[in-house]
Design a protein around this nucleic acid. Structure first.
Lengths: 120, 120, 120, 120
DNA sequence: GTGGTCTAGACCACC
DNA sequence: GTGGTCTAGACCACG
């Protein structure tokens, strides 16, 4: 699993992690029994304090999304309901929506945006 | 001028405002002498505390983007250089890029994203 | 570093702090790398709200006088030009001048003022 | 009566006026029956809003220091106790004390201060 | 009505 | 412990 953090966004990093794991679990990208990255390697990879990862995992465990086994690791638990398609679309709408606001301020046209989107 | 805030993004609200005003000024959407919304009305509209708006405006003033006159209001100052077209594209790239990360977690296809984008 | 605040003067407390730090830096009393008092302890000592100190430090940082490192502290930056002697005299003139106005209202003589000045 | 305002000091202008009138009355510079300047001329002279002067006078009246007669003007009332000499010295101490703080930050010597004081 | 300042208390990330 | 951000509410001067 790859995590995308926005360190400058001000949103609590541990919450970004929690949300992304929950999203992935709810969308089926993470399935029952899958192993999450270890705290220390993940902390290094994301260049974040270990406590931050630990806090995210602990939050996820208390929400029943994952189970941690001391000395073994953290595993996705089985009781996460999958998103239905329309819910997924709704969740997608917001992040897609945001750049359009920026575009407005920059007075860019629709084609300009789409061309940039295509390149990715 | 319309502002689009992402309250859950964790990015400091006042910085979102600063960026949007600077963007609008640099793109020509805001011009020398234009009046910005008053602190209190804007705070209400955005459902944010007065001080948050005040901090944004104060930051903008110290950056020379606006001039504030106590008792009168805040006005766009005249010395903001306009963006050239290629710079504008670069600035647009980042916010367009971000939702793609979200999409990955949701296992959505490219067409699904584009369809959502079109609706806006 | 010791700070002298005049709480009743109506001059913004955070500006008094900004000025004193800049003065001390420009006169050489504060040197590159020196640590400023922490926000919270200083707020307690001066019996002022944390945010007031924070605003002063943040202003100083945006003026390039200090550098703040979250989680570490605030440090005097290296690029503050020193005052020359005549500039120093000019800066001193204003605060020396002010009490003379008060004296007028109290109908005190010059010797009375000097005697008080001597005692300090 | 001459007033000395510090517009940049942040201290409420109307309070500066109140204090100076009270001081002058208590020290004997203003005596029973003396006329205070009219609101409008004074406002113009001090380049201050009329409301500010009005507020000061109203405060002074409610403290019994002056009496205002509609259509005539404002007059110093007779029941203001005079300062004793030691009280006067104490009141003088604070404004004299302040520049010494500045001096400390500028690392100026005592003679430098006195020389400046003499010139006034 | 406008902006400017201050207080009190909250949560965040990092050390 | 450090600084950074936000909220809620207060008082100020000016208009």
């Amino acid at each position: 699993m790859r995590f995308l953090l926005n360190y400058r966004s001000g949103k609590a990093v541990y919450l970004q992690l929690v949300e992304q794991v929950k999203l992935a679990a709810a969308s089926g990208a993470l399935q029952h029994g899958d192993t999450l990255p270890g705290i220390r390697p993940l902390a290094e990879q994301l260049r974040v304090n270990r406590n931050t990862i630990a806090k995210a995992y602990s939050e996820l465990e208390s929400q029943g999304v994952i189970e941690t086994v001391a000395g073994k690791g953290c595993f996705v638990s089985g009781n996460v309901p999958l998103f239905k398609k329309d819910v997924r679309r709704k969740r997608l709408a917001k992040p897609v929506d945001e750049p359009l606001g920026h575009a407005q301020h920059l007075q860019s046209g629709k084609t300009e945006i789409l061309r940039i989107g295509e390149e990715r």
